[in-house]
Structure formats: C-alpha cells, structure tokens
Simulated assay, not measured.
Amino acid sequence: MLVDSHCHLDFPDFAEELDAVLDAARASGVIAFQTISTRLSTYERVRAVAEAHDDVWCSVGIHPHEAGPEGPVAAETLIGLAAPDARVIGIGETGLDYYYGKSPREDQIRTFEAHCEAARATGLPVIIHTRDADDDTIDVLTRQMGKGAFPGLIHCFTGTDRLADAALEMGMSISISGIITFRNAEELRQTVKRVPLDRLLVETDAPYLAPVPKRGKRNEPAFVAHTAAFLAGLKEVTADELGTVTTDNFYRLFSKAIRPAATGATGA
C-alpha cells in the first residue's frame, strides 16, 4: 500500500498510455496519486486527469521555473481555484530553484510568497520545490509562518540538514524521491536517516528521476515501490511498515483527499 504523492500525469510522456501506466501502478500497490500543477496556463489539463480517475488528486500552482513566464500571481487566484474544488488537495508546486535559474529570483520569491499565503488561507499544504536555495527558502517560510502557520511539504528533498531541521521545526513534512537510491546520494541518505518516520512521504516526480533499478528509463508511478523499499531499508523497517506509515502521513497531511475505505489507517 503506497501513495505516489507527487507525479506529473498530464505531461506528454504519458499521453498515449496513461490508463496503462495507472493500472501498472495499482498492480504494484499504489492506491492514490497526486498529479502536480506547474503552470496555471495548463492547470485545466492537470485538473482533467484528476477528474477522470477517482484515485488521482491534484494541486494548483506555478513551478519556480515558470514564475517568470507565467507572470505575477495573486494568492486570491490560487485560493479561488483550490478552495471550492474537491479534486484540489495542495498548493503548488512552488518554491525556489537557483540551480537552473530559469526565472528571475525576485519572481520566484514573489510567487512562492503568494502560494504560502494561499496555503494559509485554504489550509491546504504548500508543495515546495527547492534547489540550491536553502537559505532563501528558509527565509521565506520563516517570514510567512510569522504571519500564521500553514501546512507544507518539501518535495523531492535533496537539501541540507539545516533545511530538513528548519522544515521539521515548522511542522512540515519531507517527501523522498528516487534520488535516495542513486549511488552519489550518500549525504542525502544520512540526512533522511534523521527525519522521523511520521514526517516522511514517498513520490516519483514522474516522468523524472526513475529510481534504481529503473534509472535511465521514463519514471512512472509504479516505480515508487522501489523508492519505498530502499527507504524502508534505510529506516530499518519492513516495506509494509514503510508503506503504511507513508500512506497514513499522506492522508493526514493532504486531508482533503478521501481515503479508500478498504485501506483505512492502521494507527501506525
């Protein structure tokens, strides 16, 4: 029993075989999916995937790469899209990416702030992408939390101990992708060992970042099982235990998502 908490099912990579991809994931034990918005200009495509499948939920937001091209966004716009829509369970993905620098930093920060404001107003978790921007990510979150707490998740975590500690101190959760399985990810593994189990989620970020032993292939939600199995070994729990706790964590954090009755929480 697993949830792929972050994937991009609307991307062209899956256009010709989305039903088969979802069926393969379900056969691997994936009971739910969150397909993530990266641009408001393509949000309706994201929303349509969630509407078509009872076990697929979605978010609404602007990726930091798109902060410049998409232009300024008001928190009220995000709130208006998310609050009344039963399929929207998260705000984002948003955040800061200084590695590629595809959008000006000031645009990224402004957009990130708007998403935090929307998360506070709606109570929906903000889904944060951060790369080579730990200091500014912490600064934005600290400033925004000072205006009132809101739930959140650092997705595809690859940051430092300092970022992990700051996020946990703010009550946020951390999501682990296939990067944890990569040979050169030992520093990340040591950081993740320190994260409490009750704050961990798993994801694919499909179609990107396929885990070992699928590295180099198009990633897809079924492969979250490989990431989860590796993470279970790292945390010294069984795969079933890891699946149960990360699934419980998903539904606790993304509380707007409706959990299938047959897979109710076990109290883990």
Rank of each mutant, 00 (worst) to 15 (best):
G264H: 01
M145N: 13
F250P: 03
D132Y: 13
R194S: 06
F223C: 14
R218K: 06
G243P: 04
G267L: 00
K217N: 15
T191W: 05
N184C: 11
I179R: 13
A210L: 04
K193L: 09
N184S: 08
P196N: 03
C156M: 11
R215S: 06
R183C: 10
D136W: 14
D135Q: 14
A229G: 03
A133E: 14
G152Q: 15
E241W: 09
L201Y: 00
A261I: 15
A210D: 04
D134W: 10
M145P: 13
P196F: 03
E169F: 04
T142W: 08
R189K: 15
V195L: 10
E186G: 12
Y208E: 10
L253M: 10
V245S: 00
I180G: 03
A257S: 13
T158A: 14
N184R: 12
P196G: 02
G178P: 11
G148L: 15
S255P: 02
D198C: 04
D134P: 09
A257I: 12
A239F: 04
A164D: 02
E203S: 14
A232H: 15
T246L: 01
K256Q: 07
G146T: 11
D135K: 15
D165T: 15
F157E: 04
E186L: 05
L200K: 05
R143A: 09
N219V: 13
L141F: 13
T137R: 02
L253Y: 02
A164H: 05
V237P: 02
E220Y: 01
I174K: 03
P213M: 07
E169T: 09
A268E: 01
P213W: 06
K256G: 05
V212P: 12
T204G: 09
I174N: 01
I174D: 03
L188E: 06
V237M: 04
T130K: 04
G148R: 08
A164P: 01
T158H: 05
Q144Y: 08
K193F: 01
